[in-house]
């Protein structure tokens, strides 16, 4: 009994870690493939969004930083759930590539960790953005951490791009993205912004290190489903052989745990 409890705790924790670091990466890569296909189609059809108001989770730009080998589709929205699929465009800023300040959030350690190597960027590095209006090349001005001076004010004809992620700091640095990290980049030739982004409409859950409490009801459902599965397995064991039951139950268990972990991720800070 005692050992079973600890086994369960160990399985839960390690599954969670595994999903955050490895399985989530697979999921994110899959999402990126789908998003890339979708965005490519939109670009070809010239229907890619050029003004605010895209649904959260839909692609809005392609972001590539050759110096750190980053190539990602940026989705709309910065809630924890949106960032599971890839870097997210903060909805109260202009779209990447446009005149004005654009902000993109991305995860630093989990779910593919697209912004893991952001801190390696140095002033002068190139950031390429392909958006519905065309491609834009930004030049990195520098990496900024808490306490550093704010970047210089943008000229009216300039476009700014700020990449935001967690900084790996403190003990066990690779896995603890607890501090905020900004990378400021600027372009001299932005595209005109097609409309002003909604002002104060940004929900709490889409700010840096915010969590999305809207995921709680879903979590309850997922956990209920897990309990139901457990009961089902116990009941089935009475009638059929163990091997048979596990052959049938394992995929369901994995799928349900996967889903639950995804939901739990939404309850965790969005930049980790």
């Amino acid at each position: 009994m005692f050992s079973s409890i600890f086994t369960m705790v160990a399985i839960c924790s390690l599954w969670f870690v595994a999903q955050m670091l490895f399985l989530g990466g697979l999921a994110q890569e899959r999402s990126q493939d789908l998003l890339y296909a979708e965005y490519r189609e939109q670009l070809a059809a010239a229907t890619a969004p050029i003004e605010p108001g895209t649904d959260p989770g839909r692609p809005v730009a392609l972001l590539s930083i050759p110096d750190i080998g980053l190539h990602q589709v940026v989705v709309e929205g910065t809630a924890s759930g949106d960032l599971l699929a890839g870097p997210g465009h903060r909805r109260d800023s202009v779209l990447p590539g446009q005149a004005g300040a654009s902000v993109v959030y991305g995860r630093a350690s989990t779910y593919g960790a697209p912004f893991a190597e952001l801190a390696d960027l140095t002033a002068g590095d190139r950031i390429d953005v392909v958006s519905g209006q065309g491609s834009t090349t930004y030049t990195v001005r520098g990496v900024r951490r808490a306490g550093d001076p704010l970047p210089q004010v943008l000229e009216p004809e300039e476009g700014g791009l700020t990449l935001v992620s967690g900084e790996r700091a403190g003990w066990w640095s690779a896995l603890s993205p607890g501090e905020v990290l900004y990378v400021d980049a600027v372009t001299r030739k932005p595209f005109p912004s097609a409309g002003s982004p909604p002002g104060e409409a940004l929900p709490e859950s889409e700010k840096a290190f915010a969590i999305d409490q809207g995921a709680l009801p879903t979590l309850v459902l997922c956990l209920a489903a897990l309990i139901a599965l457990t009961l089902g397995v116990i009941a089935a064991r009475q009638r059929w052989s163990t091997a048979l039951v596990w052959v049938i139950a394992s995929p369901i268990a994995v799928a349900l745990s996967w889903m639950s972990t995804d939901v739990v991720m939404r309850l965790l800070p969005n930049l980790m």
Binding site: L175, E179, L268, L271
Partner: peptide
């Protein structure tokens, strides 16, 4: 200057989970 933003959760969760998992 840049305001200090951060999250203890984000910073500690993974190490704690790994430790708990290994200990358990």
């Amino acid at each position: 200057s840049t305001p200090a933003l951060g999250s203890t959760w984000a910073g500690r969760l993974l190490p704690i989970l790994i430790s708990v998992g290994l200990v358990a």
